[in-house]
């Protein structure tokens, strides 16, 4: 399983009604709200064993799956 597949699976656990793979402005367009974000952070914590700090909860890090994956890789030191 690639990291992207792992990420999409984790996101689907939080919201199965959002097309994460194809959306580019998840936060800015209001497709996910602050509560979804907190769930996503918990899901990423579990899937990738990383702890995202509050300062990184910014729309630009969660607007699309590419940005989220970059954030995950930054925490993993990749």
């Amino acid at each position: 399983m690639t990291d992207m597949e792992k990420l999409l699976a984790a996101l689907a656990e939080v919201r199965d009604d959002v097309d994460f793979a194809d959306e580019g402005a998840l936060v800015d367009d209001g497709l996910i709200d602050s509560f979804d974000l907190t769930q996503i952070i918990a899901a990423l914590d579990e899937a990738f064993d990383i702890h995202i700090i509050t300062g990184d909860i910014e729309p630009e890090n969660f607007n699309n799956v590419q940005s989220m994956l970059e954030l995950v890789h930054r925490y993993q030191g990749k």
């Binding site: 602050s34 907190t38 952070i41 918990a42 702890h51 700090i53 509050t54 909860i57």
Partner: peptide
């Protein structure tokens, strides 16, 4: 949201 909700819910204790 920024200064209370996120720090509480995404802290190690919250997770």
């Amino acid at each position: 949201r920024s200064y209370l909700l996120y720090p509480l819910t995404t802290s190690k204790a919250g997770i």
